[in-house]
């Protein structure tokens, strides 16, 4: 584990480096994560792993394309999250020590005061995200934990809903499930810890709170979030030309809908 300014290099097995910029939900931290992801992706000049070669010596974890920065050979995939960038690599192509040094050089270059133009450009891009309206039917059978959230926060259920729909949330990352948006900037007044023991089945469209995070489940799944409502909107559709409703940097606006409206929207396919 090495310190590079405020960056920590963590180990997730022998084939992954986690470049950690922070431990909290912070737009600045998140911006640095995405900036490094973009810089590395450009330098690798690939966004995905090519097919495995039947004749090559790599059986399971092939080298990535050889065009692009030779110093970044061995990188297979980049996964930006709230506060860290996971760099998956082939440990038989490059050692962790070497790759960490090379990534550290990128971080240093990125964070030097000079490329302020790049920073400005990034900021501009970050502000161009589209706003997606997500209608939600709160409480009752669709939001079994709304009552708990109200009790935990000392608010009424209506107040929790009002606070939840009063802000526009930034999509910090997608993860956990295809198209699952992690939204930051929720009002601390409705923050509620996760379930101690995750549920084994949460229906698709469920809107939840976990600590001071909020988001919604694009698919049925196990999970530990407190469920306060459900949306008929599909966040992931593998058979659509655009499988993902949201991209990192977009904004989400939740709006309250009554049960009847929910049913009507569900029947019409769930895409706005």
């Amino acid at each position: 584990m090495k310190e590079n300014q405020t960056v920590r290099f963590l180990r997730m097995g022998e084939a992954c480096i986690v470049v950690e910029f922070g431990t909290t939900i912070d737009p600045e931290v998140n911006e640095r994560v995405h900036r490094l992801a973009r810089r590395l992706k450009e330098a690798c000049s690939h966004s995905r792993v090519p097919p495995l070669s039947p004749t090559g010596d790599s059986f399971l974890h092939p080298e990535t394309t050889t065009h692009g920065d030779v110093n970044l050979q061995g990188i297979r995939e980049l996964v930006p999250t709230y506060r860290s960038l996971a760099v998956y690599f082939d440990p038989l192509v490059v050692t962790r020590t070497l790759l960490e040094e090379r990534i550290a050089a990128f971080v240093q270059e990125m964070e030097s005061p000079e490329p302020s133009e790049v920073l400005a450009e990034d900021r501009k891009l970050g502000q161009q995200g589209k706003t997606v309206v997500v209608p939600v039917c709160y409480g009752g059978e669709y939001g079994p934990d709304l009552e708990f959230v109200a009790r935990h926060t000392g608010l009424s259920e209506a107040e929790v809903v009002r606070i939840h729909t009063s802000r526009t949330y930034r999509v910090y990352m997608l993860g956990f499930l295809p198209g699952f948006p992690y939204l930051g900037g929720m009002d601390e007044r409705i923050a509620t810890p996760r379930l101690e023991t995750p549920r084994t089945r949460i229906p698709a469209g469920s809107v939840g709170i976990a600590g001071s995070q909020t988001g919604f489940y694009p698919l049925e799944s196990p999970g530990g979030w407190r469920i306060i409502g459900r949306t008929p909107i599909k966040a992931f559709d593998p058979f659509s030309d655009t499988p993902f409703l949201l991209s990192p940097g977009d904004f989400v606006q939740f709006t309250y809908i009554p049960e009847g409206e929910y049913r009507k929207l569900s029947e019409s396919g769930g895409r706005p």
Binding site: M12, C16, T23, I25, Y82, R83, P193, T197
Partner: peptide, 18 residues
């Protein structure tokens, strides 16, 4: 037992509150 979510990998051993 909660952290701000980050990436996972096959083989990673998560330990929830239980």
């Amino acid at each position: 037992a909660d952290i701000v979510s980050d990436a996972l990998a096959k083989g990673a051993v998560q330990v929830p509150g239980h």
